[in-house]
Structure formats: C-alpha cells, structure tokens
Amino acid sequence: AEIMKKTDFDKVASEYTKIGTISTTGEMSPLDAREDLIKKADEKGADVVVLTSGQTENKIHGTADIYKKK
C-alpha cells in the first residue's frame, strides 16, 4: 500500500472504496510508525493509506483510513 496525502487522495477518491481504519501506537520513530501503518494496510489488502491523525509526545499515535481500488 502507498501513503497518500489527503489533498492528493481527494483528486482520485472516486477510484477507491474505503475498507477500514488502522492505527499505530508506541515508542517508535515517525518512520517506524509509517512503516507499521503500511504493513497493517498491506495485511488488509489495501492499495492506499490516507493519514487522518498523528500525534507525538512521549509516544507516537497515528490513524489512517485504508482504501482498495474499485
């Protein structure tokens, strides 16, 4: 799966169907969080990951919607 910015995804959204939401939390780098989200998306058969939230304090927390091409 590839990560797309919401603004970029909005241009092609009609080509995809939302298949779920994924999240990651833990003591990790932003890059590790990104890789974890991609891994989870791949496991669910998603083609595209669109980040919906991200937070960093002591731990990273990120959520994303996942989509499959129609």
Rank of each mutant, 00 (worst) to 15 (best):
F9G: 00
G54A: 13
D10N: 07
T63W: 08
Q55H: 13
G62W: 15
E35W: 09
K59T: 13
S14C: 15
R34M: 15
I66S: 00
S53C: 14
V49Q: 00
A46W: 00
S29L: 08
A41R: 02
K68G: 03
E43S: 08
L51D: 03
E27Y: 13
A13G: 04
T25R: 09
L31A: 15
G54W: 15
I3Q: 01
T52N: 12
D8Q: 08
I66E: 02
D32G: 07
S23V: 09
T25Q: 11
S53D: 12
K70Q: 05
D42M: 14
M28P: 05
K68T: 06
T24V: 12
V50Y: 01
S23K: 09
I19H: 00
P30L: 13
D47Q: 06
K69H: 08
E15N: 13
T52Q: 10
K44G: 04
A64S: 03
I3T: 03
K69I: 05
K44M: 15
L37V: 03
A64W: 09
D36P: 02
G26M: 12
T56S: 12
K39Q: 08
A41I: 00
A33K: 06
E15P: 00
E15L: 13
D42Q: 13
K40S: 05
K11T: 06
V12M: 06
L31R: 12
G45V: 03
A64L: 06
F9W: 03
A13V: 06
E43D: 09
K18V: 03
E2A: 12
T21Q: 11
A41L: 01
I60L: 11
Q55F: 15
T56V: 10
T63N: 07
K39P: 02
A46L: 01
A33P: 05
T25P: 10
E57N: 10
R34I: 15
M4P: 02
D10S: 06
E15Q: 14
I22D: 00
A46E: 03
N58W: 11
P30M: 12
P30C: 15
I38G: 02
E57W: 11
A33S: 06
D36R: 05
I3M: 07
G62Y: 15
N58T: 10
E35T: 08
A64D: 01
S53Q: 11
I60Q: 13
T52W: 12
E2R: 15
K6W: 08
D42G: 13
A1Q: 02
T7P: 08
S23E: 12
V48W: 01
K70M: 07
I19G: 01
D47A: 05
D65K: 03
E43V: 06
D10Q: 08
G26Q: 11
E57S: 11
A41P: 00
T63Q: 11
I38P: 02
Y67G: 00
D36C: 12
Y67D: 02
P30F: 13
A46Y: 01
H61N: 09
K68S: 04
D65A: 04
E2P: 03
G62R: 15
Y16F: 07
T24D: 03
E27N: 13
K11P: 05
S29W: 11
A1K: 02
D10H: 06
K59Y: 13
E15S: 10
A1D: 02
I22Q: 01
Y67R: 00
T25N: 13
Y16Q: 01
K40D: 03
I66V: 04
L51N: 03
A41G: 03
D10K: 07
K39S: 08
V50N: 00
D36N: 08
I38C: 07
Y67S: 02
E15V: 06
I3D: 00
T25Y: 10
N58E: 13
G62Q: 15
F9L: 03
E57C: 12
I66T: 02
D36E: 14
I22E: 01
A41E: 00
D47L: 04
T21L: 04
L37R: 01
S23N: 08
T17Y: 15
L51K: 02
T56F: 11
N58R: 04
V12T: 03
K59N: 13
T52K: 10
G45H: 07
P30E: 15
Y67W: 04
S23W: 13
G45W: 04
K11N: 08
V50I: 06
P30W: 15
S23D: 08
Q55V: 13
H61F: 13
A33D: 03
Q55N: 14
I38W: 04
D65F: 05
I3C: 06
T21I: 07
T63M: 10
S53K: 08
L37Y: 04
K70N: 13
K6G: 06
F9M: 04
N58K: 07
R34S: 07
A1I: 13
L37D: 00
K5D: 15
K70H: 09
K11C: 08
V49G: 01
V50T: 02
K11E: 06
D42P: 00
V50A: 01
D8C: 08
A33Y: 09
S29N: 09
P30V: 08
D32T: 09
V49K: 00
E35Q: 13
V49F: 03
K44Q: 12
Y67E: 02
G20T: 03
I38S: 03
D32Q: 14
A13F: 07
K5C: 15
G62V: 15
K11H: 06
E27K: 10
K11Y: 06
P30S: 13
T56K: 08
E2F: 14
I3E: 06
M28C: 09
Q55G: 11
E35D: 10
D10L: 07
V50E: 00
T56E: 11
S23H: 12
K40Q: 14
G54Q: 14
L37G: 00
E2D: 05
M28N: 08
V49T: 01
D8F: 04
K68D: 02
K18F: 15
T56W: 14
Y67P: 01
S29H: 08
K18T: 04
I19C: 06
G20K: 00
T7Y: 08
H61C: 14
K39I: 04
K70I: 13
G45S: 05
T21H: 08
S23P: 05
